[in-house]
Write a protein that binds this DNA or RNA. Structure first.
Lengths: 257, 257
DNA sequence: GCTCATTCGTGCGGTAGCGGACAGACTCGC
DNA sequence: GCGAGTCTGTCCGCTACCGCACGAATGAGC
């Protein structure tokens, strides 16, 4: 039952100085259009797990284009209870609100899985957006995707049980994780789902008993994606479909950039 | 206990042919900029309660700028269970996805309170957006507001009880309703919150017992806003704050249109 | 090898909300 | 005035999850 859990793998990181194609797919989509111009404004950073990128209601300084890193957008209530409203990996952008004309973020952004990301200052992004076209359209399209995903999250937290949601989350993290295992203690899962850690414990041990996942002391891995998807709620597939549509729609969106 | 509930009031409606300032605040914000040009493309319609404006995954034909009408965006799961992800009245727009470059809507749009709305064809909106500036910025800002609201909805459905959420919903409807009472059977409330009607029945009779609301046979009215707000979750205030910020931010947003 | 912080399993009583169901009350149409 | 349809109140057993709490296992640091 401890299969596959051991030393964690970490892939090499790309350089910001060109040559290597960007790992973040939003940036990759800009290859051949704006990418060369914005490249100097991009900076490569390594995000640590647990790092807070944004605090709620605070001014945003940078937008992030994750590579291996995975970031959660988290909404906190007055009494301190939390819930995740979106998981962002190499298919997305952290800092959508800047693009949407805002200055602050309503949510907290917390790094879930350590790894590399490219970032750009909010100021540069605003300047860049004046040049308009490709980046603008891309971000509009991403906003649409994100809106659909978060909308599904409302239904998910209303109607789906803990075990299904744990399965969904682990599938999502596994999808973005560069390695077979990733660091994710049950307490973090509980905070993301907005439930008790004890509830996560029960769900996780149940999934482990069926051989779908493996974990020990915060190191978690998905063993059987297919079967785990069956245990997950429809939301995982829904979200994947949204991101797939986002990507396959890019040619149309950027068509006459 | 049946105070104030009787014949329902309905205010007069504005004409699309100019003169009268628009009742939808997004349109109103365009006065002096784009409004005159887009006016001929706007059409006044009266929306019936229960009317479906969009079905999920269906192509959007019109965007709506509600006046007295109130529309709910509803997410449905495979098993038919539903939940509301946003209530849109005269402060908003139905059809954000078109603006965001989409063609279809992920959610269903269902008219909750009958009333007037202006509408524009999706095609005209797309054309209009090419001219850019004011409308574009306005919609970006609205998208940001909507994102914050829906994000709070996730936390709300995860952490708040039925009674609090019923209070929140009724406050919201009352805010948009032109009349003191509005038509809203418990079954509809239950569908919006994604809970059993029986649960709504208990919550509502509890609130009524305290004299905060009144209702009979689908006709509901808020009697004591202040006290009802205390019974509601923080989400109501949060949402009001977002919309207030949206409005007070309009000068900045449109500043150099 | 021992210590200590972290992580995980588990148990208990309590509760909110579920699914299903039914009866009473009201209202509209005829 | 009557029947049909709608809306609301309520009841049942049941499950999922809560809040709280404690002990055991693990692994990292010394």
């Amino acid at each position: 039952m401890t299969a596959k859990i051991g030393t964690r793998g970490q892939r090499g990181r790309s350089s910001a100085t060109g040559g290597v194609p960007p790992r973040n797919i939003v940036l990759a989509a800009l290859l051949g259009t704006q990418y060369k111009r914005i490249l100097p404004k991009l900076e490569h950073v390594t995000l640590r797990g647990g790092q807070t990128l944004y605090r709620a209601e605070q001014e945003i300084e940078h937008v992030y284009f994750p590579e291996e890193a995975v970031v959660a957008m988290i909404d906190s209530l007055d009494d301190g209870r939390t819930v995740e409203v979106g998981i962002i990996g190499r298919e997305g952008i952290v800092g959508l609100n800047i693009f949407l004309g805002g200055v602050v973020t309503p949510d907290k952004a917390l790094v879930q899985l350590a790894g590399g990301a490219m970032r750009m200052s909010a100021k540069d992004l605003r300047t860049e957006l004046r040049f308009g076209s490709p980046l603008q359209l891309l971000l509009l399209s991403y906003a649409r995707t994100f809106l659909a995903v978060i909308s599904q999250s409302v239904a998910c937290s209303q109607h789906h049980g803990i075990e299904q949601r744990v399965a969904r989350l682990l599938l999502t993290l596994d999808h973005y994780a560069g390695s077979a295992e990733f660091s994710m203690p049950q307490a973090s899962i509980a905070a993301l789902l907005g439930v008790r850690r004890a509830g996560v414990s029960e769900a996780a041990s149940h999934l482990r008993a069926q051989g779908l996942i493996a974990y020990r002391r915060g190191l978690t891995g998905v063993l059987e994606r297919r079967d785990l998807e069956k245990r997950s709620c429809e939301c995982y597939r829904f979200i994947r479909r949204q991101y797939a549509a986002f990507q396959s729609d890019l040619p149309r969106v950027l068509g006459r950039g």
